[in-house]
């Protein structure tokens, strides 16, 4: 059942990868109808399967009933046809982190959704202000930055581009709150807020590890036991994906020339060698035998 009284009752998501699937689930869980566009039919299948698996886990742990699971799944429709986004009040773009690709998708999607729709990007590495220039109505565009896994992380950054209308920011804050999450309104700066803080820390850890301060396991153990972090920095990097972190921190470096963002040599080498972290079982901790 769809609650048509909600703002953004009909929402589109572009891209059914990890982030797109997580976001689609969060939006559908809040009572909204979600149409997920992915040009790759195979990804539509794996995306829907990922949502189902996640919800099944929730049912098994008693977090939601089978009926609720079925209702959430019933609100999500996958499509490979961009015309199916016609009439969407909100479109959340969660495609590949590539400026050219995103600009092309955003222009196409805006043409379908119509003038009154709000369009947002889930980018973590690109300038929202720059992407806004690809749209005919940049004032109706903003960033909506979810953290992985989107279903679990309590915070969503609402990124105000230079062009973004204040009423759009307000509606997005209410939207995030309707998910049961905390909205943090941030400036359009490289890394926004959270990554601005955390990327230099992660780079620093990688360099000190490479310089032999301690083992990867001991660095993670020290910060977990000493500071109560759920994950140590090197476990976190494995989970984020070393390629993803490398891309994000390099983008921030290019935008700022701040050496705190410079990708450490060991990270670049690991990415070059195909060590991408948890997703392929090779990383700082992934695939390593504990000492």
């Amino acid at each position: 059942m769809i609650d048509s009284h909600l703002d953004f009752a009909r929402t589109g998501v572009v891209g059914f990868g990890t982030m797109g699937a997580g976001i689609a689930q969060v939006v559908a869980r809040s009572g909204r109808a979600v149409t997920v566009l992915d040009l790759d039919a195979g990804r539509l299948e794996t995306g829907l399967a990922a949502v189902r698996t996640f919800l099944d886990g929730g049912v098994a742990r008693g977090k939601l009933t089978e009926n609720e699971r079925d209702a959430v799944l019933g609100r999500i429709t996958g499509t490979t046809d961009v015309h199916d986004l016609a009439g969407a009040e909100l479109v959340i773009e969660a495609a590949t982190e590539n400026s050219g690709t995103k600009r092309e998708i955003l222009a196409r999607v805006t043409a379908e959704a119509g003038d009154s729709a709000v369009i947002v990007t889930n980018t973590s590495a690109l300038s929202v202000t720059d992407l806004a220039t690809a749209l005919p109505r940049p004032e109706r565009f903003a960033g909506l930055h979810f953290f992985n896994p989107a279903q679990l992380m309590r915070v969503v950054e609402v990124v105000r581009a230079l062009q973004t209308d204040e009423s759009v920011v307000e509606r997005l804050v209410s939207l995030v709150e309707s998910f049961g999450k905390d909205a943090v309104v941030v400036k359009d700066r490289p890394g926004f807020l959270v990554n601005h803080l955390v990327m230099p820390y992660l780079n620093d850890v990688i360099q000190e590890y490479d310089d032999g301060l301690a083992t990867a396991e001991d660095i993670d153990t020290a910060l977990k036991l000493g500071l109560g972090y759920k994950l140590g920095p090197l476990e976190l990097l494995d989970l984020i994906g070393l390629d993803v972190h490398d891309h994000a921190t390099t983008s921030a470096y290019e935008a700022t020339r701040d050496p705190a963002y410079a990708s450490p040599p060991l990270l670049r080498q690991m990415v070059a060698a195909g060590h991408h972290g948890t997703k392929n079982g090779r990383g700082f901790r992934a695939g390593q035998v504990p000492a």
Partner: peptide, 20 residues
């Protein structure tokens, strides 16, 4: 001015799983 005391604390605990 990137955030307030409250918004930065909320962002860090909510996005990174720090206990405070």
């Amino acid at each position: 001015g990137l955030g307030t005391t409250e918004s930065i604390d909320a962002a860090v605990t909510g996005a990174l799983g720090h206990p405070m």
